[in-house]
Amino acid sequence: MYLRPAAAAFRVHLRNTLARPLFQIMLFVQPFTMVLLTHYVYGHAGSGASFYVMFGSGMSGMWVATAFSSAGDLGRERGYGTIQPVLASGVPLWVVSAGRACGALALSVVPVVTSTLASVFVFRTPVPDELSVVGMLLGVAAFGIGCHSFGLVLGHLFLLSRRTVVLQNFLEWPLIIVSGVIVPLTALPTGVRWFSAVLPMRWGTEAAERSFSEGVIPWPLLGAAVGIAAIYFAAAVALSHAIERRVRTTAGLEVI
């Protein structure tokens, strides 16, 4: 029923984003510099670390593009004053924000592909023989779905309380680290590992990493990633309803 509004939000997101020069850089240039970094950090560590060279930069790019830019987009919608007319059309907020976040997710495939190609063809990163391509793709997709729903929760939280926006800049890198895309999950301190276990992205990362190094399709990990993402998505929907109620009682989005 809400497919068409969501698809429209998806298109608007693509148009809006591609019109922003900063984002073009983030999408097309940043992956290369990131690969350069991971190459020099992990390049001597042998094929055991290849995953982080090949996918670390792309997946962190996916994280930034999906979770953070979609959180930022909701803030910008508030700035433009477009949230009210959108709500007034009778479409729930989460439909529109989920549609936009899908747009962000689709765009974020670009850094994954460019950085992987760069690491294979430019830096000649060694690839394990037993790698499962299907498992890899599923793992990255599960990671993306995790970014999508986690980003929705963040975005709606930012809307609900402007104070949480300060968190935005502070959270970006710590969350990349605990997602395990740049630093191996096993290298994290135990306490941090507990925290990362409640993040949907972390399970996608592990699934991708296992497919890469062991050549298996780790269904339980994929299931955990998607299941936790679903919980976050439900939370985002609940938050969106809370925002709509808040807006109507306090005129919260009026004063900008």
Binding site: V12, Y80, G81, Q84
Partner: peptide, 29 residues
Amino acid sequence: INFVYGGERGLYWRLSAEDNLRYFADLYQ
């Protein structure tokens, strides 16, 4: 129903006039 609140806000400035209207056409189905 529908409404106009006077002022410049409430439109997507980076989109064309046509795309703005088409977006709302989709929202209102």
